[in-house]
Design a binder for these strands. Structure first.
Lengths: 196, 196
DNA sequence: GGCTAAAACGGACCGCGGTCCGTTTGTATT
DNA sequence: AATACAAACGGACCGCGGTCCGTTTTAGCC
């Protein structure tokens, strides 16, 4: 009979019904988002579809943004996996510069595809926190690999910034710049920053 | 008696009461925002303070975001003026590189100071549209002046992206990076992009 | 100064995000 | 199995952003 005392900050064990509901809610939310589009999905609808009360939604996800962030997170996780252990050039195996460029393109497309969900998620639910820090870490690693020196965390951020949805949307929707040109522009930026 | 017919897309003359009200609303909004902070200001409050009906607010500014954008715009205009015709190094008179660096620092600080208003304004009311295109234009001009070649619109965007509030907030609030370091990092970025 | 069409006004009204709190359910203990 | 306590539940409720539409004001014209 060990573990009478919880370890330092064990994240509090989740009760069975809670787990079941969380899953039901996420599934329902995903289904609704896919069928009617993000901004036609209300919290009450999700609650109904999942067969739970509204209060339960907010208990688990804090806010609408939080819920959307959670939904988004599902696909984000898949994407991260393909970066970490997928096939090259996105995954390991290709030379660093190729990986970096592939990474940028992939992220650019992903952000555009997930656009509506992404801004429904806002910066809540720490989606952006987790996502950003993963991306930043990865870019930092590749830059080091490339022998770049300087303030790597900031350089990584600078490289990633133009891929943020806010910036992309301005360019794609307002200025009607085609995606290919954005990719080319980003490649150029990277080469300038990396040097040589 | 000329101008019986309105010119092509004359912006529709504004009626006297409308003008008076618009001004009253903006003044009221500014006053309230300054005294209680952006997110404690409701549309109804503003309407009351301005002595108009709620409908009038929405008629003129479309949404809460639109109103906030309009308020923000006031100060933005002042800032733009100091870029165009203020004292160097921000204004004209200094060598391009100095101007560029001054521009970045100034914008960085401005974004952080106006943070709450800026994200209350969202991307509505085309605040971000107008602001972005001004900044982009200016940076483009300085880059050309510096003899940079390449896709200038995209390079300008890339340089400006790390100054966007979304990015800054992540760094300042989450990662606790001091502003001076951000400035230094940005300078580094600019030098790499400009080259030489 | 009347008259009229167009524009602006304002407040009742609606829907949704978010909270609150009395009730139910799960789990650990004996 | 019975008990007890914490945690989860759910729906009534609230406030605010946003809309709608009947009423009022303005401005041009005779």
């Amino acid at each position: 009979m060990n573990r009478l005392l919880p370890l330092a900050d064990e994240p509090a064990p989740e009760r069975a019904d809670a787990a079941r509901n969380r899953e039901a809610i996420l599934a329902a939310a995903l289904r609704l988002v896919e069928s009617r589009g993000v901004d036609c999905v209300t919290m009450e609808t999700v609650a109904a579809e999942a067969g739970v009360g509204k209060g339960t939604l907010f208990r688990r996800f804090n806010s609408r943004e939080g819920l959307m962030a959670a939904v988004l997170n599902e696909s984000e996780t898949v994407w991260q996996a393909s970066v970490i252990s997928g096939p090259p050039p996105l995954g390991p195996g290709a030379p660093p510069m190729e990986r970096l460029l592939a990474f940028g393109h992939s992220r650019l497309r992903a952000n555009l595809v997930g656009a509506s969900l992404i801004d429904a998620a806002g910066r809540a639910g720490q989606r952006s926190v987790a996502a950003m820090s993963f991306a930043n870490l990865h870019v930092r690693y590749l830059l080091r690999e490339l022998g770049v020196d300087g303030d790597l965390p900031l350089l990584a951020t600078a490289i990633l910034a133009p891929l943020e949805l806010v910036v992309l949307e301005q360019q794609v929707e307002r200025e009607r710049i085609p995606v290919e040109r954005l990719e080319a522009g980003w490649d150029d930026l990277v080469r300038r920053v990396v040097g040589g």
